[in-house]
Amino acid sequence: MIIVLAHDKGGVGKTTTALNLAEILKPDIIIDQDTHNNLVILNQLRDEKDQLNVLSNLNKSELINALSKSAQGQLILVDCGGFDSELNRIAIAASDMTIVPANDDINEVVGLKRFNKTLEQISNDMGEKITGHVMFTRVHPSRKKFTDVESFINNSDNLARLQTVIPTRKWHAMAALDGYGVTNHKKTKYSDAAREVTALATEIKTRLNIK
């Protein structure tokens, strides 16, 4: 299985979500496509015994080779950079699920519109439909309805919505300071953030039919 965090808009929460999901899904390989090697650096903060298998700076053939290990049953998690590039598109094209972290702000529609177009092009190139699963994140904790952005998603051919919402919580940055996701840090593992991330992982596992 290949799970990809992607949005060609920067700073939406891809890396935070990747780290949070890595704690629960325990991927065999994590691919860091960000030019700033965010996950590589976070991994350096972790204890020796908690090291993640992070690959970075892969070129095209190395990337395709790593992705192809999913055919042997490996679980691969990819954190894309916040830009539209050839290698990010390749990861999306290969994915079993592409997750698109996004805010509920109405301005977000502009970014999603562009990303829907990108997904449409990748689908055409690949000859199969690729869907971006929009995940609302960094939203106000009391926010429950996302009517405006949701209706846009419903009208976009290449976008769907994940039901789990990840609100803005201080615990994400707190855990990341030591290189951990919220479910695996002693200060945050009993927080609302940990509960929300666990729900997200459960939704993804259910949709992909993985245990």
Partner: peptide, 9 residues
């Protein structure tokens, strides 16, 4: 895939 992306690595 990705020839029409804005950037190429």
């Amino acid at each position: 895939i990705g020839n029409n992306a804005a950037l190429s690595e």
